[in-house]
Design a protein around this nucleic acid. Structure first.
Length: 599
DNA sequence: CCCCCCCC
């Protein structure tokens, strides 16, 4: 007779979640678990390592079909432990055998190897199994879920769900139960998304579900996605059953659940139309905006703020994915008297209306960084709410009306580098010219107080691509259509864009500079559209617009860059920002300058 | 079966 060597003592390690590779075990008994759904076949087995045995081991569908004979020797190739919530006994740890190999058939072995004794449950609280190795005695058959079972008032349920008596808590769901009904609130719902890759293409959406026990992500694909997409709405409560569970890919989910689910053809979802007070509302952990400055980039925060302003919708193509992206930046302030930019994407960016200073709430916004400032961005998983009916919303509204509107606000999205409200050093045009600035690739930035001496009004507006943020000059096809080479498209319309060349004088000398639309609009006090219209239809009005701006003074923030044009070096100067003169600031610069001259 | 989370 062959001697079989079991991996003695390993069950204790395994049940303590140590990893033991390919342990050899003996099956001392097995019992098919009653399951009303015929598609799944599972076996509860009494498993021995020769020293200890456990009766709370389970052979999953994928590990075996037809069960295992008593006394068989098996190699556990893949297994996990899992906490199972049992109606009668509370929590219990079970060993789930996901993959095994039969080493020797039970009738060949013919006897129990060693003298195994039941392994105590280290958790202590629910060691009801340790007094018996008898599968017949156990309550495993009934072990479904529910640490705190809730009797379900049948009146609130539709017929298809009413077979089952108990609402399962989300935290108790595992792939090894399939008879459950959860009562959960949709805390978030994604857009319908399409994908296309080597494995195929399709569409999907997902929802996040919460109940008092926990949360879980649920995804629907293709026709099932179509079936449920409109029905499921954020914040509503549903009875949900017969989804397929699988281990969650933690890399892509920040939800606190080891599993996620997929809706199937069997899935039944019914809105809870009566009492849903037992299902929690979405909870927010708002972080004051000033504190976001100290938080790590890449982490998620819940934020509430008043939309002080919002950018136009911008459209561009992602370099990495080649997708066309739409975004809108929303400038938020809160009671910490701090402001931050929040970027919305896609349909949320399109539909956002920043007028009337709405309250913006985001659950799970990602902290980003740009140019030395912090910003926020929504993710697919973020939940956006405008003027939600929550206390904090009314509180911040009140603050804004009474105080916030006029408050001095620190902007933590402000870039210390180039582009926005950045700091540039004071220099005069003459210093820039004499010192030969503008040699670097990025150019050199400086600011000076200057007076507009002359504006070249000819060719100061051009017809641009009507797409938001494209701005490429279009070709007038003279048939009512305008062609954008950048978009490779023809449009029936265009938009005017200012691109103005003007001569600016400061105390030292003068300099020809270029102003793009936003800065030119600032200087002229007119939109590009207005100026374009006047240029075409009202030449006298157009002349006035430009004359009005003559001799106005501003702080000009400039970028100087040397360019070679026809073999000739020329200093090209772009005004990247015009600001009204802050005399206090400018005077302190002049005082410093005088000090340096006399010392 | 997705898993991209983007840009200046």
């Amino acid at each position: 007779m062959t001697n079989y060597q079991l991996s003695e003592g390993t069950l204790k390690l395994i049940m303590n979640d140590d990893k033991v590779p390919d342990p050899i075990m003996q099956v001392l008994g097995s019992k098919k678990i009653n399951s009303s759904s015929s598609d799944k076949e599972r076996y509860r087995i009494l498993l021995s390592d020769g020293k200890n045995n456990v009766s709370f081991a389970m052979l999953t569908t994928q590990a075996s079909s037809g069960g295992v004979q008593t006394n068989s020797i098996i190699k556990l190739k893949k297994y996990i432990t899992s906490m199972i919530n049992n109606v009668n006994n509370g929590e219990r740890k079970v060993l789930l055998i996901l993959d095994m190999e039969l080493i020797a058939d039970g009738n060949k072995v013919g006897k129990i190897i060693g003298n195994p004794t039941p392994l105590g449950d280290d958790k202590g609280s629910s060691t009801t199994v340790s007094n018996s190795t008898s599968i017949e005695n156990s309550s495993m058959n009934r072990a479904t879920t529910a640490p705190a079972p809730v009797e379900r008032p049948s009146s609130m349920l539709n017929q298809s769900l009413s077979e089952s008596r108990i609402i399962s808590p989300i935290s108790g769901l595992t792939p090894y139960h399939n008879k459950w009904v959860i009562k959960a609130r949709v805390s978030n719902k994604s857009d319908m998304r399409t994908w296309s890759n080597s494995r195929g293409e399709g569409k999907l959406f997902n929802i996040d579900l919460i109940d008092e026990s926990g949360e879980i992500r649920c995804t629907a694909f293709r026709d099932i996605a179509d079936k449920f997409f409109n029905y499921l709405q954020v914040d509503k409560v549903y009875y949900i059953s017969k989804c397929q569970l699988k281990p969650a890919n933690k890399q892509f989910s920040q939800l606190n659940n080891d599993y996620e689910m997929t809706m199937t053809n069997e899935t039944v979802i019914e809105e809870c139309l009566s009492n849903d007070n037992d299902v929690p509302q979405v909870k927010f952990n708002f972080v004051p905006i000033d504190e976001i400055a100290n938080r790590d980039v890449g982490t998620l925060v819940d934020v509430i703020g008043i939309c002080k302003s919002a950018s136009d919708l911008q459209t561009f193509t992602s370099r990495s994915t080649n997708r066309e992206l739409k975004k809108r930046d929303v400038h938020l302030v809160d009671q910490s008297k701090t402001a931050i930019d929040l970027t919305l994407w896609g349909s949320q960016a399109e539909s956002f209306d920043g007028s009337n200073n709405p309250v913006v709430v985001v659950k799970g916004a990602k902290i980003g960084e740009f140019g030395g400032g912090k910003n926020l961005s929504t993710l697919m998983s973020s939940q956006l709410k405008i003027n939600p009916d929550i206390q904090e919303c009314y509180r911040i509204k009140g603050w804004y009306d009474i105080e916030g509107k006029q408050a001095d606000v620190k902007n933590i999205s402000e870039r210390s580098g180039i582009g926005g409200g950045f700091q540039t050093s004071w220099m005069s045009f003459k210093e820039v010219q004499e010192q030969g600035l503008g040699q670097s690739e990025k150019g050199d930035y400086y600011q000076t107080m200057g007076t507009i001496l002359l504006i070249r009004s000819e060719n100061s507006v051009y017809k641009a691509c009507p797409t938001a943020e494209c701005n490429k000059k279009v070709v007038d096809l003279e048939n009512g259509m305008y062609r954008c080479e950048k978009c490779n498209r023809e449009y029936p319309n265009f938009k005017y864009r200012l691109l103005v060349s003007m001569n600016i004088g400061d105390w030292s000398t003068n300099q020809w500079v270029s102003l793009f639309a936003s800065e030119a609009e600032n200087v002229l006090g007119k939109t590009s559209q207005d100026v374009g219209y006047a240029m075409e239809n009202d030449s006298e009005g157009a002349v006035n617009i430009f004359q009005e701006a003559n001799f106005k003074q501003f702080i000009f923030k400039c970028r100087a860059k040397m360019e070679t044009y026809n073999d000739e070096q020329r200093l090209k100067t772009v005004v990247v920002k015009v600001d009204p003169v802050n005399y206090e600031e400018h005077n302190s610069y002049l005082v410093d300058k005088i000090q340096s001259f006399i010392s």
